[in-house]
């Protein structure tokens, strides 16, 4: 286990081009992330947030640059070695990405697949200890009474908690969250973000969270990485970020003056909605 504060992820000059004619999805991104950090990546749609996250666990292969995770260069590893690295990186998705026709418990246990033999994993032969772990995790996330329900019976917020449980089941060092609350209402969003923060604080798991909602990012993350058109615009503490930084992060090349105000209106709406929801 890496010590808190030690370097867990080092991204060096990462670039990604999807097809020759397209602009770079990532342009020479270099980042160092320490163990135990709660980092939020913000930026407009299409800025490269998802690509950055998927380059870290190699769901997307970078065109250039290196990814060093927990002291190991994982840029070109393949097959079994890659699967082993992925077991220590959890991932949470905007659309939850559960196997909807299976039960909550089965979905949570999927987090163990990478640790098991192909045979045992394929047949779903989990040990008693693994099942006990799954129930413990479901208990912490308040899902214990839904354990045997099929995932398609759950609400969005509950599904995302199953997603978190599946990631925790991996016993990860790092959790990547790709827009975890983009499809949720403000109340469920708060529940999910609270859980992520709790996981980060109590278990010391590093979290990198892509967010659309600036207010959530500022409230939860200690560190903000602002991306626009594949380039890191801002990288620093969430306290130090100001209006000008946000304007730079969300600027667009097209003449689009209402954009900034639209973002501001959106933030106000969310805050207003939350106040109503809490009242």
């Amino acid at each position: 286990m890496s010590l808190p504060g030690s370097e867990i992820l080092n991204i060096k000059n990462l670039s990604k081009v999807y097809s020759k004619n397209d602009a770079k999805a990532l342009n020479d991104v270099s980042l160092t992330i320490n163990s135990g950090e709660f980092v939020s990546v913000i930026g407009p749609s299409g800025a490269g947030k998802s690509t950055l996250l998927r380059c870290i666990n190699r769901m997307v292969d970078a065109t250039q640059g290196e990814v060093i995770f927990d002291g190991q260069n994982i840029t070109t590893i393949k097959g079994k070695a890659l699967r082993r690295v992925r077991t220590s990186i959890g991932m949470i998705f905007q659309n939850y990405n559960l196997v909807e026709r299976l039960s909550v418990l089965e979905n949570v246990l999927h987090g163990r697949l990478g640790h098991k033999s192909t045979f045992a994993g394929s047949l779903g032969l989990y040990t008693e200890a693994e099942k006990k772990d799954a129930f413990d995790i479901l208990d912490t996330l308040g899902l214990i009474k839904h354990a045997y329900k099929r995932c398609d019976e759950l609400s969005g917020g509950q599904k995302q908690r199953v997603g978190i449980a599946r990631a925790l089941m991996q016993n990860p060092k790092l959790i990547l969250c790709d827009e975890p609350i983009a499809s949720l209402d403000p109340n469920s969003s708060k529940v999910i973000m609270d859980h992520l923060l709790q996981i980060n604080e109590t278990m010391g798991i590093t979290c990198i969270v892509n967010l659309h909602q600036v207010d959530f990012a500022l409230r939860y993350a200690g560190r903000i990485i602002g991306i626009n058109e594949g380039t890191v615009i801002y990288d620093g503490s969430s306290q130090a970020i100001d209006e000008q930084h946000l304007a730079d992060i969300y600027r667009s090349d097209q003449e689009d003056p209402p954009h900034q105000s639209a973002q501001a209106t959106y933030i106000n709406e969310v805050v207003a909605f939350e106040m109503v929801a809490h009242a």
């Binding site: 699967r83 991932m91 939850y96 299976l102 999927h110 640790h115």
Partner: peptide, 21 residues
């Protein structure tokens, strides 16, 4: 598409993704 992505992100192998997802 989505669940297979999630399973391969957990480090599951091809046969595991097929059988479980």
């Amino acid at each position: 598409e989505e669940s297979a992505e999630a399973l391969s992100a957990t480090g599951a192998s091809f046969f595991q993704i097929f059988a479980q997802g």
